[in-house]
């Protein structure tokens, strides 16, 4: 089995529930130390949305993470994904207000790069592309 990487994942409580249901008991993905995010919204004129944001410590293989992103996170959600490598462990956020269809990676020096996620190209090609982006980012 590939190496498991550890990161913090910010998402909604509903998304957390889905991730727990989908992953079941497999070794490729684990979630622990779940806590509510209780800060006020950073953007003025942002409405509460009736969602409960949470943060959790996650362990996952790059393959599993890439598959979840391609199969679900980018397809079904209203927002894109942000990966902030300045944080220890790295932060992956599904609630950072990134426009839909984009992955933003902020490197250790604070430099942001965007990746348009072409999940419509076909799952294999999209998955390979995502694996390569994640490996490159996490291998820094």
């Amino acid at each position: 089995m590939s190496d498991v990487i550890n990161f913090r994942l910010d998402m909604t409580r509903e998304e957390l529930k889905t991730e727990q249901e989908v992953s079941g008991d497999i070794d490729e993905f684990s979630i622990e130390n779940i806590k509510p995010i209780t800060s006020l919204p950073g953007e003025p004129l942002e409405e509460a949305r009736f969602v409960e944001p949470v943060t959790a410590l996650v362990g996952a293989t790059v393959l599993y993470l890439a598959k979840r992103m391609i199969d679900h996170w980018f397809k079904e959600k209203e927002q894109g994904v942000m990966m902030d490598l300045r944080e220890v462990p790295p932060l992956i956020s599904r609630i950072a207000g990134i426009p839909m269809g984009f992955l933003v990676i902020i490197d250790k020096d604070g430099q942001a790069t965007t990746h348009k996620v072409d999940y419509d190209k076909g799952d294999d090609e999209a998955l390979k592309s995502m694996m390569s982006i994640l490996n490159l980012a996490l291998g820094q």
């Binding site: 207000g97 990134i98 426009p99 902020i106 965007t114």
Partner: peptide
């Protein structure tokens, strides 16, 4: 609005306004 918000987000990340 989407275009405006995307430009705002891009600016906050130090990216060009049309990054998204």
């Amino acid at each position: 609005i989407r275009r405006f918000r995307a430009a705002e987000k891009a600016q906050s990340l130090g990216l060009p306004l049309n990054a998204f």
